[in-house]
Amino acid sequence: MQCSYFDAGRCTSCTLMGTPYAAQLAGKEEHARAVLGSHGPAEWLPAVASRESGYRNKAKMVVGGTVTAPTLGILDAAGRGVDLRECGIIAPGIRAAFGALTAFVTTAGLTPYDVPARRGELKNLVVTESPDGQLMVRFVLRSREALPRVRKHLPALLADLPQVAVVSVNLLPEHKAVVEGEEEVVLTEQQTLTMRLGGIALHLRPQGFFQTNTEVAAALYAQAGRWVEEVAPSSVWDLYCGVGGFALHAARPGRTVTGIETSAHAVAAAERSRTEVGLADVRFLAGDATAFALDAGTVPDLVVVNPPRRGIGPRLAQWLEDSGVRHVLYSSCNVTSLARDLAAMPSLVAVRGQVLDMFPQTPHSEVLLQLTRR
């Protein structure tokens, strides 16, 4: 894939841009094997490839420029907006909506936030696309000042973009380099975006986490589901469960599945999916994964962990090592923290692994491991 923004030096975020895709994928496999070393699996399944372009189902665009000529993209070193509306890794459905969204910024008088001057209202625009082609649009504002204007002009936006299902305003009053704040105001009747994967409807709330590559996420959940079925556990824990992707793909009638997630909103979304599927033996709880494991007093047959980049950490790794759990599925977006966690669990041996390319044009990938106790 070639990118005019990258070639011109306007955006260098995709550091592998221009590298043949086969070489990218081979490099990620080699990197995973090298970093995991002796802790790596005895068997590596073929890597799961992605589309080279148009794979990102979520675009986080910094808004710059002026209210009459807004930019969507990033900021340069001086804090000026760099427009990246034609970014090739963003899903085509999202790119097609950018024209109407920038027009809405002007119509609603949403003055882009000037970082050097620390004035203005609209900081970021976050757009997510579902597998069905519906969109969730979030306006990250400095204050509530522009909220009435967003409400006033919203019907016209929905008429221009009928594929938009969820619209919200996120409030980020602080001057700091983050994408969003804590408070969210949903402006549409529909509160969640439906992400259908493997016959299961997962429900994504505005502040929820979802894998940014829908097709590879489906492959990840499907592979994990196959490995779970081979083991045929009677009980499963899904720690760091998010909106319930792994838990719901592992669920079967008569199998108890418990998902743990710190976000109460994500848990509510997961419970909705569980109810729709009709799985009485699945439950989701809001809480800390490590604290839940240490306090549970029982041990499941299989544990799924899908932690953030920092990994599961020493306390949970030690619990898994000492618990007697027979099987663990570990999904990681950072092989360095994965290797560290594996070193702390010598009794759990990686028998199979797979690299899944969630992020083409970048060095990042997902690694899924199947661990079995010696």
Rank of each mutant, 00 (worst) to 15 (best):
T256I: 02
G313Y: 05
V243G: 01
T298K: 12
L320V: 12
A266E: 11
R274G: 06
R309Y: 08
V282R: 00
N306T: 09
G311T: 07
G324Y: 05
P307T: 08
T336C: 11
H327R: 10
V328C: 10
V303E: 07
R309G: 10
T298G: 00
V305S: 05
W319R: 12
T336Q: 10
G297D: 08
S323L: 07
S263G: 04
R274I: 01
F246S: 10
A296V: 08
V277Q: 14
I260R: 01
A269R: 00
G311E: 13
R274C: 03
F246N: 11
G324S: 09
L302W: 08
A250R: 02
E271T: 11
H249R: 08
D322G: 14
L294C: 11
R326H: 08
P314K: 13
D288A: 00
R340Q: 13
T262L: 05
R315K: 07
P308D: 12
G353D: 13
A270P: 05
V304W: 09
R309V: 02
R315D: 14
A268D: 11
E271L: 03
G353L: 15
Q318F: 09
L329W: 06
Q318S: 07
D288C: 01
R283G: 04
H265G: 12
R310L: 09
S347R: 15
V267I: 09
G242M: 14
R274F: 00
A350D: 01
G259M: 02
H265Y: 01
H327S: 15
A296N: 12
Y330S: 10
P307Q: 09
L279N: 02
F284T: 04
V282Q: 02
F292D: 04
D322V: 09
L316S: 07
T256C: 14
A270F: 10
L329H: 05
T256K: 09
C333F: 15
V299I: 13
G287E: 01
R352Y: 14
A350Y: 15
D295Y: 13
H249A: 11
R310C: 02
R326T: 13
S337M: 12
H265T: 08
N306K: 06
A251P: 06
F284C: 03
A289W: 02
T256M: 14
A247F: 02
D295R: 13
L285W: 04
G244A: 07
R315L: 04
A250S: 12
G297F: 11
T262R: 01
D288F: 09
F246W: 13
A264N: 04
L316A: 09
E276L: 07
G245D: 01
P300C: 05
A350T: 07
R283M: 06
W319M: 10
D341M: 03
A317R: 01
S332D: 10
G353S: 15
L348E: 15
A350Q: 05
V325M: 03
P346W: 01
A291N: 14
G244S: 11
